[in-house]
């Protein structure tokens, strides 16, 4: 408890909010590393996931990558890439991209998969092109789940970006890796607290985005609160689970949408959903 209070005191000290290694700089570095890694991973994994979901081809990739990529030890991988490419931001980004790909891929794939086959069939039958079906039907209707994948990816990357400091690049992890050998635990604790708070804030933001991503016409159609609650992951943060915006509406006759707007892709890390 003393260390915790010490950490708070350290956080409150204006001296730690200034300079090249001040909290704002480290925070921005951390967010920057996270954003770059998630962006690169999203470009790769979401396009691939949408392609697989739309065509039904290569779907084994979703299962194999989510399994294989996750089995890789992040820190070991970082060292490996650092030895190969040299010390720098490169190995960090690569490792974080690899970490972010499985939830993004699974989210994009599961999002498209979740769309009622009859709706897609009808869209095709009235003369929409495959591209129009993807962009105007599958993506909007699958968006909550696609954003769910993004949410998982961001959370994992923001937590793991701490290891960027191991090389040592930057980010909030620097407070941990720099001060641990010196046995100065206030900044170590403070760094951990900052990472946690950042993760919680991002979680709240993405939970809100995910709710907004549910198309209006679908929100009306959504199931009862009981159905929404079923299979919910137990979460530390209350923000993620409240679906105030989705109350009401008739019982859904589309089991494909089951799981509610906060349902995560089947294979996501931080969520403990059973696969649909």
């Amino acid at each position: 408890m003393n260390s915790f209070l010490g950490a708070l005191a350290w956080l409150a000290d204006p001296a730690n909010w200034a300079g090249d290694d001040g909290i704002p700089v480290r925070l921005l570095e951390h967010i920057g590393i996270t954003a770059v890694a998630v962006f690169i991973a999203a470009v790769i994994a979401i396009s691939l996931g949408l392609f697989i979901g739309h065509t039904g081809r290569l779907s084994f990739l979703v299962v194999s990558t989510t399994g294989a990529l996750r089995a890789l030890p992040t820190l070991g991988l970082l060292v490996l890439f650092a030895l190969w490419l040299g010390i720098g931001i490169g190995p960090v980004i690569i490792v974080l991209v690899i970490l972010a790909i499985p939830p993004l891929l699974a989210g994009a794939y599961a999002g498209v998969e979740s769309v009622d086959r009859a709706t897609i069939d009808a869209a095709r039958a009235i003369g929409m092109t495959e591209w129009q079906i993807l962009t105007r039907v599958e993506v909007p209707l699958g968006l909550p789940i696609i954003v769910g994948g993004l949410r998982s990816a961001v959370l994992q990357v923001v937590a793991t970006a701490t290891i960027a400091a191991y090389l040592p690049i930057g980010g909030l992890g620097r407070y941990i890796f720099d001060f641990l050998p010196l046995r100065r635990f206030e900044p170590v604790f403070a760094g951990a607290i900052l990472v946690t708070v950042l993760a919680l804030v991002l979680e709240g933001v993405f939970a809100a985005i995910q709710r907004l991503a549910v198309p209006k016409g679908v929100r009306i159609l959504r199931g009862s609160p009981a159905a929404l609650g079923a299979g919910r992951p137990a979460r530390v943060e209350p923000a993620a689970d409240s679906d105030g915006a989705d109350s009401g509406g008739a019982d859904s006759d589309r089991p494909e949408y089951g799981g509610g707007p906060t349902s995560s892709p089947p294979a996501s890390h931080t969520h403990s959903h059973p696969t649909q």
């Binding site: 009622d116 009859a118 709706t119 069939d121 009808a122 869209a123 095709r124 039958a125 009235i126 003369g127 929409m128 092109t129 105007r136 039907v137 909007p140 209707l141 198309p215 209006k216 016409g217 679908v218 159609l221």
Partner: peptide, 22 residues
């Protein structure tokens, strides 16, 4: 196929309307 379908009306059992469009 796309041009053909666009000049033929198609009505199915469960309407097949896009749920996210008015």
């Amino acid at each position: 196929p796309v041009k053909l379908r666009r000049r033929i009306g198609y009505v199915m059992q469960n309407s097949g309307l896009l749920p996210h469009r008015t």
